[in-house]
Design a protein around this nucleic acid. Sequence first.
DNA 1: CTAGTTGCAAATCATTTGCACTTGC
DNA 2: GCAAGTGCAAATGATTTGCAACTAG
Lengths: 140, 140
Amino acid sequence: MGSENQELRKAGLKVTLPRVKILQILENSERKHMSADDVYLALVESEQEVGLATVYRVLTQFEGAGMVTRHNFEGGRSVFELTPEDHHDHIVCTSCGKIREFFDEIIEDRQVEIAEKLGFRITDHSMNLYGICEECQAGS
Amino acid sequence: MGSENQELRKAGLKVTLPRVKILQILENSERKHMSADDVYLALVESEQEVGLATVYRVLTQFEGAGMVTRHNFEGGRSVFELTPEDHHDHIVCTSCGKIREFFDEIIEDRQVEIAEKLGFRITDHSMNLYGICEECQAGS
DNA sequence: CTAGTTGCAAATCATTTGCACTTGC
DNA sequence: GCAAGTGCAAATGATTTGCAACTAG
């Protein structure tokens, strides 16, 4: 259970209760993609209230440390996920909000080639598909 | 010059001064991608002040009519561009903000295949690369 | 001890909305 | 003339920040 402490130290962050708690939430939640508010609510439910401002600060620090990745999907708010070993992209259901991940070697390769051709040294990319998932197509 | 009026009527929008002005800005600006604030400032410069709220309203109406496309790049604010005939994606320089467009048939095809495989009826997608452009690599 | 961290409330930023006033047709 | 459109200011929602109180090492 102290594994979080190692991770935090490795990231050069002091081990504090809010940080440990937030890391646990991210690791144990069934939802892999959470907004700052989702994390905050999960914290409240688990009896460990932490200020929303701190949630934002900590998530931003985690992002800076590379532990967490921030996504800017359509609709304003950011969602965070533990930085995955294996890179992947997302497909978001615009009806129910479900997020599915995928990885496609061909697309990844093309992205690099394209960036090179245009003279860019690529640092990051986001590729998100938006649509209606099976259940929602059937549902409504 | 009255071509804007045609476009507006075709979109079912009453021809008003603010709408015509905003459409002209979008058509004539050398920057193809503008935030609501960029449009507002251009309006101010051209002596035709229009309320910022109206700029937002009009851009949203244009988007609804399909005349304009909204992009949510990293960093909060939305940028708009006249909906292009030919679909394309974007590569953004995180240093100077320059935006380059590109289109890749292979990627487009893969996106559709992937969405199908996952059971999604795709309605939209965004694929943005972020990096440092040649000039900025040389510059700093 | 003391620099780093947190909580809370106030501040920001982008965007939206309520409402009285104006304008296109 | 009247419904649609607009301006302005106030409301909103997400995120950030100032600052005094707290805590890890």
